[in-house]
Computed example of a mutant assay.
Amino acid sequence: MAEWFLYVPQSRQGLDDLVQKARTAETAGFDGIAFLDHLETPMAPTSPIWEAMTVATWMAAHTERLKIGHLVLCDAFRHPAVLAKQTVTLAEASGGRFELGLGSGSMPDELAKFDLSTASPRERVDALGDTLRALRQYWGADDERAQIPTPSQPIPIVLGGIGPRMLGLVREHADWWNLPATYVDRLPEFLPKIGTAKATVQQMTGFVRSGDDPAATTEKAQRRFGHLGPGLVCGDAQSLGAHFRRLEDQGAQRFYVWFADFAPPETITEFGETVIRG
């Protein structure tokens, strides 16, 4: 049975709002929650956004069962030795609920603006590979660079992307591989390229709740997120359930559900009742 994660970009809302959404997701039957990692809100740099690892820590402290992660942490934001220590600390504090999602950086202008990196895409993927190999050393009890304490249990690693070199890192290092939303319709094409990693799908969802006007809900979702193409799916519980079942039949083992209405608690609750548990 596939896992369900609520994907919630932690911008334009308060920390109390995020806690409420996390707790609602936990009650509604979601298995986890994931955040993004940027220093500015993508495409809206004047909108406030909270730091990713701190938010994950706060959500872990305010939930009991949810797995906690990111799509994805930016490699350039944290030195590998510091990231290794942060990850082990949060994994242990949460009772093993933290997963490490990592990426090479999707917004080069942001990296340059804050003097983090001017590396090319190829160089950033190379750096991510270096980080992943370093993490294994820092977490390995028998390595001379091992940090104490070492993890008491394996920490799952989540990588995304579809480029050949990124998929090579997936095969070498990842427990989970995430297919970006804009490539949802190409899932079967990539599955043979991910090795033993389990496949996840990020899906923007225009959920038509009970009593909603389907045309109005769909129009608003298309206006906001139509640029995602197949990454946006709209419909009521029955049609969305069928959509996710098709993806599961194709090989998806986890869904990161991203709501076009920005996930108010009512949407999270009804989706859990009618799609996840339906």
Score class of each variant (00 low, 15 high):
L169Q: 05
W176G: 13
E189K: 11
W176K: 05
Q202K: 12
F225W: 08
Q222C: 06
A181T: 05
Q222M: 05
G211P: 05
V208Y: 09
D212L: 08
H173I: 03
V170A: 00
T217G: 09
P188S: 02
K220W: 00
A221P: 04
R165V: 14
R209W: 00
G195R: 04
P180L: 05
A174E: 14
P192M: 01
R186N: 10
A174I: 06
S210M: 12
D213I: 10
A221I: 11
V233K: 03
S210F: 10
L191V: 02
R171I: 06
S210G: 08
G195I: 03
L169K: 03
F225S: 10
A197T: 03
Q203E: 02
T218G: 02
K193I: 06
G211D: 15
G206H: 03
V184S: 13
Q222E: 13
P164G: 12
T200G: 14
A199H: 03
T218E: 14
V170G: 01
R224H: 13
P192Y: 02
D212E: 05
A215D: 11
A199C: 08
Y183A: 15
L169S: 04
A199P: 04
P180V: 06
T205N: 06
P180Y: 13
G211L: 12
D213R: 07
P230C: 11
W177P: 07
P164R: 13
G211S: 15
V208S: 07
I194P: 03
T218R: 13
S210A: 07
A197W: 02
W176D: 09
G211W: 11
P230V: 09
T200M: 14
P180K: 00
G231I: 15
P180C: 11
L187W: 06
T218I: 01
G229N: 08
V208C: 13
R224C: 09
G163W: 11
Y183F: 15
T196N: 13
V184G: 10
H173C: 12
T218Y: 14
I194A: 02
L169I: 04
H173N: 07
A199Y: 01
S210R: 12
E172V: 05
V233M: 05
W176R: 06
G235D: 11
I194G: 00
L228D: 11
Q202M: 11
W176T: 09
T182I: 10
L187E: 04
C234K: 09
T182R: 09
L228I: 00
T182H: 03
V184Q: 03
C234I: 12
K220T: 08
R186T: 10
M204K: 14
